[in-house]
Amino acid sequence: MTASEPATPTVPPPLERTYDPAWVEETARSNGLERMGVRPRLGEYLGELWRRRTFIRVLAVSKSQASNQNTYLGQVWALLTPILNAAVYILIFGFILKVGRAGIENTIAFIVVGVFFFRFFERSIHAGSKAIRSNLNLVRSVHFPRAVLPVSGVLAELTTLLPALVVMCLIAYFSGLLPNEGDVPLAWRWFLLIPAVILTWAFSTGCAFIMARLVAQTPDIDNLIPFGTRLLMYASGVIFSIDHFLGSFSWGWIMKYQPVAVYLELARSAILNEPSAPLDPTMWLIGLGWAIVFLVGGFLFFWQGEETYGRN
């Protein structure tokens, strides 16, 4: 090192350059420029989301296919996991503790329908909470309405649910042939399962929107989700009859009419032949109401945070 060379590296002073805001706005307008990093208007946002519907579908199907890719059985796990899950609950709550038998004629079918439906809801919540965080790379490289992510996350769960529903119906039907269990006859009302799934889907998407924004802004909430869903599981009568255990309390009606319990009852009233879950038009209206409230409310809530996603 010779003495002539500079001892310390020098950086030129920063350019003190800012434009006049009025000039910026005028120039932006005359050049047809659009402002970035601001939330789009609701109508535009919905339109953009609609144009990306193929993207949503492809993303959902791909995710659903990729989810069990690292196992030997692959997609079989999509069916096996809920069956094993239900089997554990049937064994413990139905046959050992007998909680699932009180006030129920066909425990197996009751718990199977409850577990399969609740699992869809639970996994949708998880999909929503992961929507932004696990796709941060995508969020930080391409510009698209972020609502695509929670919507496709729940849609991926729905694609996993549909084949599982066939298994669910088969189990429910054959459990009716067992001597100790109530009959589960095939009937036209089984088709009501379709609107029940659609309503549950709409509701779950709404919840996923809410979770997506909450977890994107406060990652700590992600750790609370398992406790929340566990609590909801016991509060929604997945494995026992709410009427029978909570009906006598003055607050029992809250449990009965909260959305998750409503959707479980709708699904059961379509498939099962249970006196505790009769076909009830009021329940269908309540289910529709919850679906609309959560879907619209959740979407608006998510949209209001649109410009903040991808910042952490």
Partner: peptide, 19 residues
């Protein structure tokens, strides 16, 4: 590219940028 919201100031762009 509009992928990180500015804390202050503004960015005006023509069309859709891709990063």
């Amino acid at each position: 590219a509009g992928l990180i919201p500015p804390a202050q100031g503004s960015v005006y762009v023509a069309g859709d940028p891709a990063l």
